[in-house]
């Protein structure tokens, strides 16, 4: 079996307009409710992002940034703390990505969610509560304002057209930064190439039965 040939893109920076989703502890059940998990591929999940907080039982749209026209083309999601907690479902970042999100900026992220984002090449960048709130306010007032998420540099720059830009000191988890910037976030190929070392590790473990 040959290794994986897919060319892996590097993600050094992501830019685009923003969309704020406010609140702490937003769990993956909210990002994509369980009934939308009854699928064998991730295609088409985008329309269901945040479904139950966006629509009433009769499918009438509610107040939610994901329903607002002014944010329709946004690619940078700005959230608060512990975003993506709960279930490990990769359907959550898949739904966000398929809706159009290419980067998430927030105060903090649940670990499995951040890992799932990384596997899709979506950076999860953190900054202080104050900076995040200011950025959310900015996005609310300037839905067309350009945001640049610089993964390589660990910063986020934004500003209204023709005005001075503000730069936030942001943090990107070191492994995530390397993976994205060096284009090694697709780990399958990488790890497949170490098959010999894997066999050796297996052999050294008393509980692994010798494979024939």
């Amino acid at each position: 079996m040959t290794g994986d040939e897919t060319a892996i893109e590097t993600v050094e920076r992501v830019s685009g307009t923003g969309i704020p989703v406010r609140g702490n502890d937003i769990d993956t059940d909210q990002i994509i409710p369980a009934r939308f998990l009854k699928v064998v591929t991730f295609d088409g999940l985008g329309q269901f992002a945040f479904h139950d907080v966006r629509f009433t039982d009769d499918d009438e749209p509610k107040d939610h940034p994901f329903n607002e026209d002014r944010f329709r083309n946004a690619s940078v999601l700005v959230v608060n703390s512990n975003f993506g907690c709960g279930s490990s479902r990769e359907h959550a970042p898949q739904a966000l990505k398929r809706w159009g999100i290419d980067a998430v900026v927030g105060e903090s992220f649940a670990e499995i969610f951040a890992g799932n984002c990384l596997a899709l090449g979506v950076p999860t960048v953190t900054a202080s509560a104050r900076e995040i709130e200011a950025l959310q306010d900015f996005v609310d007032e300037n839905p067309d304002g350009e945001i640049e998420v610089d993964v390589a540099d660990e910063s986020v720059r934004y500003g209204a057209p023709n005005s001075e830009h503000h730069e936030i000191d942001a943090t990107v988890d070191e492994a995530q930064r390397k993976a994205l910037v060096e284009g090694v976030w697709d780990t399958t190929a990488l790890m497949k190439s170490n098959a010999g070392a894997v066999t050796e590790t297996a052999r050294s473990l008393p509980y692994v039965e010798e494979a024939e």
Binding site: E174, E182, M191, A197, V198, E200, T201
Partner: peptide
């Protein structure tokens, strides 16, 4: 430590899964 196969270029460890 016993399950670590190697360190990956990302700085993460490759862990053997039992």
């Amino acid at each position: 430590d016993r399950h670590k196969v190697t360190e990956l270029p990302t700085g993460q460890d490759q862990l053997f899964v039992g």
